[in-house]
């Protein structure tokens, strides 16, 4: 690609000095961008088109079996499990996203106020974020275990749970979702918190001082200064969070395996199982594409509706 651009001697010759410099800059830029672009092409763009090709076939781990046209897409559209797992994922996004934003925002506000031991708290709040998904999942499997787990033991000791009864955090469909949201919240809120904290610290202090002089109370300051100043950042974090949450897989797979039944099976897990357990890569690629389109549409609407309000 680079060679293709160098071979333009005529153009370089006639151009003025300015044009020449511009061309040089472009050449330099493409020299830097080139290597990345090649990787981007080989590892992102090509696989996407290749995936489209695969999704039109009956395809196993061994390779292509036969061309089936849009059959995989038609099958996926009529597949109740596809929709059920897509709903499961959406359900997770719907409950986890608001919680995630509010918790992170709350913690960021605590850290932004001048309380003692802020640095210590900041470390504590952010710490889970550096753990890998496997570590997080196994910690919580221990903590949530019935009979001997920390949560049930504490509930027994403070008398909220009568002795002899146990809460099956991971085996009851409703509790399993609560557990997964709780785990995800504990694990990932730290990152949003740091972003929001940085945003809070960017709000000029004189705004608050002026408000104090005007006799505004804490709530008024929060409502009329903090929230408007943070709106852009909150929208951005919401969009990023929704997309990230839709891709939920690791912690669910490790903690509940999609169980009990298939109650917590996420769309990614279903795609994975279709491809690598049921050995039906064509169908699983078609599902990935439909999920991909779903996410694009979702992001489009998010930006359209939330984006407008951003100043």
């Amino acid at each position: 690609m680079k060679t293709a651009m160098v071979v333009e001697p005529d153009l370089a010759h006639i151009s003025t000095g300015k044009r020449k410099r511009k061309l040089n800059n472009e050449l330099l830029a493409s020299a830097f961008l080139g290597p990345y672009f090649i990787f981007f092409l080989v590892f992102s763009i090509v696989p996407i088109f290749y995936g489209l090709f695969v999704s039109l076939h009956d395809w196993t781990l061994i390779g292509k079996v036969k061309f089936v046209g849009l059959d995989n897409y038609v099958y996926a559209l009529q597949d109740s499990d596809f929709w059920a797992s897509l709903w499961n994922t959406s359900y997770f996004v719907l409950i986890s996203t608001p919680l995630m934003i509010i918790t992170s925002f709350g913690l960021a506000l605590i850290l932004d106020s001048r309380i003692k031991g802020r640095t210590f708290l900041r470390i504590i709040f952010f710490m889970p974020n550096i753990l890998s998904v496997a570590v997080v999942s196994f910690i919580w499997i221990f903590v949530l275990a019935p009979y001997s787990g920390l949560v049930n033991t504490v509930l027994h000791n403070i008398g909220l749970l009568s002795l002899g009864t146990e809460l099956f955090w991971l085996d009851d469909p409703n509790l399993a979702w609560i557990s997964i949201v709780m785990i995800t919240l504990w694990w990932t809120q730290g990152f949003n918190m740091i972003l929001l904290l940085a945003g809070l610290q960017d709000i000029p202090i004189d705004h608050y001082e002026a408000a104090t002089l005007d006799g505004a109370n804490t709530w008024a300051k929060f409502k009329f200064i903090t929230i408007p100043a943070m709106r852009g950042l909150i929208v951005l974090i919401t969009v990023l969070q929704v997309i990230a949450s839709f891709k939920v897989f690791g912690q669910v797979w490790l903690v509940t395996r999609g169980g009990p039944g298939n109650e917590t099976r996420t769309i990614i897990q279903y795609i994975y199982e279709t491809g690598f357990t049921a050995n039906n890569l064509g169908l699983s690629t078609a599902m990935s594409f439909m999920f991909f389109i779903f996410l694009i549409i979702l992001s489009f609407f998010q930006l359209k509706f939330f984006g407008k309000k951003v100043d």
């Binding site: 092409l41 080989v42 763009i45 090509v46 088109f49 290749y50 090709f53 196993t60 061994i62 390779g63 292509k64 079996v65």
Partner: peptide, 17 residues
């Protein structure tokens, strides 16, 4: 390039079983 890589890749893995 895109077309070429698609061809090469599919040629590699399209083995009938």
């Amino acid at each position: 390039l895109i077309l070429l890589s698609t061809l090469i890749l599919s040629a590699c893995s399209s083995t009938s079983n």
